[in-house]
């Protein structure tokens, strides 16, 4: 197992929700370890990993985020405490990178440390996003993000979803897409994420399923 897992990809592919889910999974499998989630998003003004800070801290998961995130000050800054993930070898670290190549530039700051450490770097894919519907589009996001961050992906995650309206059928439909994207990128599919309540109708029908929860609460949800 890699000590550090990094989620990157097209914006809106679901990186933040996966990062938060991954943290809770790690807490379950490693009840006594230090775990830290790092919000490295310098692109997105709202809907950030920081929104889950309270829930994470209740599970004794540390949150590393810019003091300016979720404020009115738009300062694309990276806190110095991100280095703790690399310096403190007892931490299991999760890094939530901003969307697209623009968001991934921030990760480039740590490319040397990542190369030394050998992190798991996952390309998050959602085939229901209009600009990442085809394997070719996914492959170009892969190249652009790798060039911006000066890192190489080690695998991909199929996170194909239509938000709260996702059905089991939608997830099944994404199988062909992710296989083709995997071939186009030369990357293994590490897992397919599906909302936990969809698992019973999916089990046995596709490989590598991981149940996830949706942590975003929206009072304007109707």
């Amino acid at each position: 197992m890699h000590r550090i897992t990094i989620f990157a990809g097209h914006y809106g592919s679901g990186k933040t929700n996966l990062a938060v889910n991954h943290a809770f999974q790690l807490r379950k499998s490693h009840p006594d370890k230090r775990i830290a989630v790092c919000d490295l998003d310098i692109a997105n003004p709202y809907f950030r990993a920081l929104d889950s800070k309270k829930a994470l801290e209740i599970s004794n998961i540390e949150m590393i985020a810019s003091g300016f995130s979720n404020s009115n000050l738009e300062a694309p800054s990276i806190p110095s405490s991100v280095s703790a993930i690399f310096d403190c070898k007892d931490i299991l670290g999760i890094i939530d990178v901003g969307g697209d190549d623009r968001g991934a530039y921030a990760l480039g700051r740590y490319s040397g440390r990542i190369a030394e450490e050998g992190a798991q770097i996952l390309l998050v894919c959602n085939c229901f996003r209009p600009l990442s519907k085809s394997p070719l589009q996914i492959e170009s996001f892969k190249r652009e993000i790798e060039a911006a961050a000066n890192v190489r992906f080690t695998g991909m995650v199929n996170n194909s979803n239509l938000g709260s309206e996702t059905t089991a059928e939608d997830v099944l439909k994404s199988m062909d897409f992710i296989d083709a994207a995997s071939a186009a990128c030369g990357l293994p599919v590490v897992f397919t994420a599906a909302r936990r309540d969809l698992l019973p109708s999916l089990e046995g029908k596709m490989p590598g399923l991981v149940g996830i929860d949706i942590f975003r609460t929206e009072k304007w949800r109707i």
């Binding site: 809106g12 959602n126 229901f128 996003r129 209009p130 519907k133 979803n161 239509l162 938000g163 309206e165």
Partner: peptide, 14 residues
């Protein structure tokens, strides 16, 4: 066909 979009993207594509 359904797609998942941000409001800002939806304006642009529309």
């Amino acid at each position: 066909e359904k797609v998942l979009m941000k409001g800002n993207e939806a304006i642009a594509e529309a």
